[in-house]
Lab assay of single mutants.
Amino acid sequence: MAMNGTITTWFKDKGFGFIKDENGDNRYFHVIKVANPDLIKKDAAVTFEPTTNNKGLSAYAVKVVPL
């Protein structure tokens, strides 16, 4: 089920960042999981599918909501 969130941290040079989800949890995401990576920036609103990996909470099918 899709969730909403906000990008809180973005490491462009490393290709990953973190999203604060609607429950207040931080989720890892990688640029290859983003549909529109050219719009990635700190504080951008996103929708995504929540999941977990071996390191904890993460996100896939991430879409940055255009302003």
Rank of each mutant, 00 (worst) to 15 (best):
M1C: 11
M1L: 13
M1E: 10
A2D: 08
A2S: 14
A2C: 12
A2G: 10
M3V: 06
M3E: 03
M3H: 06
M3F: 07
M3A: 05
M3G: 03
M3D: 02
N4C: 10
G5N: 02
G5K: 01
T6Q: 08
I7R: 00
I7D: 00
I7A: 00
I7F: 01
T8D: 06
T8A: 09
T8V: 11
T8L: 10
T8P: 01
T9E: 11
T9P: 01
T9I: 14
T9M: 15
T9H: 15
W10S: 01
W10F: 11
W10T: 01
F11G: 01
F11T: 03
F11R: 05
F11M: 05
K12Q: 10
D13A: 11
D13S: 12
D13V: 09
K14P: 05
K14D: 06
K14F: 11
K14N: 05
K14Q: 09
G15K: 07
G15Y: 05
G15S: 06
G15A: 05
F16L: 03
F16C: 05
F16T: 03
F16V: 04
G17N: 00
G17Y: 02
G17L: 02
G17M: 01
F18L: 05
F18C: 06
I19M: 04
I19Y: 01
K20M: 11
K20V: 09
K20Y: 09
K20G: 04
K20L: 14
K20R: 14
D21S: 03
D21F: 02
E22H: 06
E22V: 08
E22I: 07
E22P: 03
E22D: 08
E22T: 09
N23D: 06
N23K: 11
N23M: 10
N23S: 06
N23W: 08
G24W: 03
G24F: 04
G24C: 07
G24V: 01
D25P: 02
D25I: 06
D25S: 07
N26S: 14
N26A: 09
N26F: 15
N26W: 13
N26G: 05
N26H: 12
R27N: 01
R27P: 00
R27V: 05
R27A: 02
Y28Q: 03
Y28R: 03
Y28E: 03
Y28A: 04
Y28S: 05
Y28P: 02
Y28V: 05
F29L: 03
H30M: 06
H30D: 11
H30V: 07
H30I: 07
H30Q: 08
H30E: 13
H30G: 06
V31Y: 10
V31M: 09
V31G: 06
V31E: 08
V31C: 08
I32A: 15
I32L: 15
I32F: 14
K33F: 15
K33A: 15
K33G: 14
K33C: 14
K33D: 15
V34E: 03
V34L: 04
V34C: 10
A35Q: 14
A35K: 14
A35M: 15
A35Y: 14
N36I: 04
N36R: 05
N36W: 05
P37Y: 05
P37S: 06
P37F: 05
P37W: 05
P37A: 07
L39Q: 12
L39Y: 12
I40T: 03
I40M: 06
K41A: 13
K41V: 10
K41D: 06
K41I: 08
K42C: 08
K42A: 08
K42M: 09
D43C: 13
A44M: 09
A44H: 04
A44S: 07
A44E: 05
A45K: 14
A45Y: 12
A45R: 13
A45T: 11
V46M: 02
V46Q: 00
V46R: 00
V46F: 01
V46N: 01
T47M: 09
T47Q: 10
T47W: 08
T47S: 07
T47Y: 07
F48I: 02
F48C: 02
F48R: 00
E49H: 15
E49Q: 15
E49F: 15
E49A: 13
E49S: 15
P50F: 04
P50V: 04
P50K: 04
P50W: 03
P50G: 05
T51G: 12
T51W: 14
T51S: 13
T52C: 11
T52S: 13
T52N: 10
T52P: 04
N53D: 09
N53K: 06
N54Y: 11
N54M: 12
N54I: 12
N54S: 14
N54D: 12
N54T: 12
K55P: 04
K55N: 10
G56E: 05
G56W: 09
G56T: 07
G56Y: 08
L57I: 05
L57A: 06
L57F: 07
L57T: 03
L57H: 06
S58A: 14
A59L: 03
A59H: 02
A59V: 08
Y60P: 01
Y60N: 15
Y60S: 14
A61N: 14
A61D: 14
A61F: 09
A61G: 10
A61Y: 09
A61C: 11
A61E: 10
V62Q: 01
V62C: 03
V62G: 01
K63F: 11
K63I: 13
V64D: 01
V64F: 04
V64G: 02
V64W: 02
V64Q: 02
V65R: 09
V65Y: 10
V65T: 10
V65K: 11
V65A: 08
V65D: 08
V65M: 12
P66L: 11
P66A: 13
P66I: 13
P66V: 14
L67A: 14
L67Q: 13
L67N: 14
L67M: 13
L67S: 14
L67Y: 14
L67K: 12
